[in-house]
Design a protein around this nucleic acid. Structure first.
Lengths: 238, 238
DNA sequence: CGCGGTGTTGAGACCTGTCAAGACGTGTGG
DNA sequence: CCACACGTCTTGACAGGTCTCAACACCGCG
């Protein structure tokens, strides 16, 4: 059930059988969430963390005037709020972007695990840093990439992240977000995202229909987005 | 020399005398850097981390066409690249935004410290998470706040962060960045930042002259920026 | 059958960027 | 002491990217 998570960890560190079993033992139950459901609210006291098993989650923050930003998206194998373990409460909401399944890890079990395996504490710290690197790249996108490159860059990133958990085909992946949700990820309006997608389609870079994204020309898409996967740190580090 | 750093940590955790001494023992030497100097380059192999003692540093990433984004700024007491300890190399540059002084902590000393004081490992993980929360707020700013609120929000954040290390007066602080550097922080052009600052001045919210920022009406500035310091986690957490 | 969410299109407004020029202060070399 | 280069701040005119508002088509679902 949490193979995706172990796969993600093993990309960066060697894991022993005992460690894998201990990590698996973190989770007490699973629950389902429907698209648009809010799983965790900003400021809420937390006693457990959520691992995404199936579906898509996002971190969201609201402003006045109904404006919302989605600040990061999670794919299966990601902890959505491991930072809640140290922060005790979050500065953002965690929302389901599509129908999803999450596994619940109580904080006291996480604490016990990290005390027993200090090496894993180091590894999860590393994963936090990789999360932050992704966040930085999103920040750069918003600061400096125009709409077209910004959307393209998100597709490139998701393609690579999904590939590492073997949820991407060579030429694309299932992408269940609506254009409206996508607009919240890239800091644009839904109308402009629609026009940007048409632009990407007319340049024969992608297809996007019935919630499946097909990448027609990966090299040109990567180039347009100035995508360099270095910031994902897809290599052994521990 | 590293009192600012200890002050920052003590805001979030109780520290024993032994822990303080051990942290102080992390640093082998200091060095100076001139404004605009690049201290660490993206991709460079790292064997030590830098604590900012005096001055201003920033994390920067470049794109083609000479576009650059500054993704986070550091004030005294901040580790600029503690994530380099786990990541081994960075996905961004670390640059001096003003003349600065940094203290150098070799990674093997950091490793020894965290093995001896596992509680500090937890604390530095927490600090990483607070860093990430700041990054999220910047992302939100870029995604959803218009130029005026974006600049205002940065000033609010810096005012609070500098206050916690007692480097802000009740009504402002020294702010050595040029308008061009500021524009790289907020994802605008220098020309537009200039006009935005004039707007803030004409609304009698701030003064900014000879590298000193004066906040004339804190409440209105906070309201304009929709600034809520919750994301800085200025409270005991460990 | 009607409804809400989604995707699409058009026209116009607004925010931000581009390009160009000049003012000012500072440091440097003659 | 002056001349000069350089970075910074400022201003204007204009271009361009993105947003707003409005309308309509489509679809799945109750």
């Amino acid at each position: 059930m949490i193979e995706d998570h172990l796969r993600k960890l093993k990309l960066r560190a060697e894991l022993s059988e005992a460690e894998c079993r201990a990590i698996t033992g973190l989770f007490v139950e699973t629950r389902r969430a429907r698209a648009h459901e809010t799983l965790i609210r900003e400021g809420q006291e937390l006693s457990h963390s959520l691992l995404l098993v199936e579906g898509w989650l996002g971190r969201a923050k609201d402003l006045r005037r109904g404006q919302r930003g989605i600040l990061e998206v999670h794919v299966p194998g990601d902890f959505a709020d491991l930072h809640g373990f140290t922060l005790k409460q979050l500065d953002h909401d965690v929302i389901a972007l599509a129908d999803s399944k999450v596994a619940i890890a109580p904080h006291d079990r996480i604490r016990a695990l990290l005390e027993r395996f200090p090496r894993l504490a180091r590894l999860y710290w590393l994963m936090t840093n990789i999360d932050a690197a992704i966040q930085r790249e999103w920040t750069l996108s918003l600061a400096r990439r125009p709409a077209l490159a910004r959307v393209a860059h998100l597709f490139c990133e998701l393609f690579v992240r999904l590939s590492t958990i073997e949820r991407a085909a060579p030429d694309g992946f299932d992408f269940p977000l609506s254009q409206s949700q996508l607009s919240e990820c890239v800091g644009l309006t839904p109308v402009h995202v629609n026009r940007t997608l048409q632009d990407l389609r007319s340049q024969e870079l992608i297809r996007l229909e019935s919630r499946r994204l097909t990448i027609l020309d990966r090299d040109r898409l990567f180039a347009l987005a100035e995508f360099d996967p270095g910031y994902l740190y897809l290599r052994r580090l521990v």
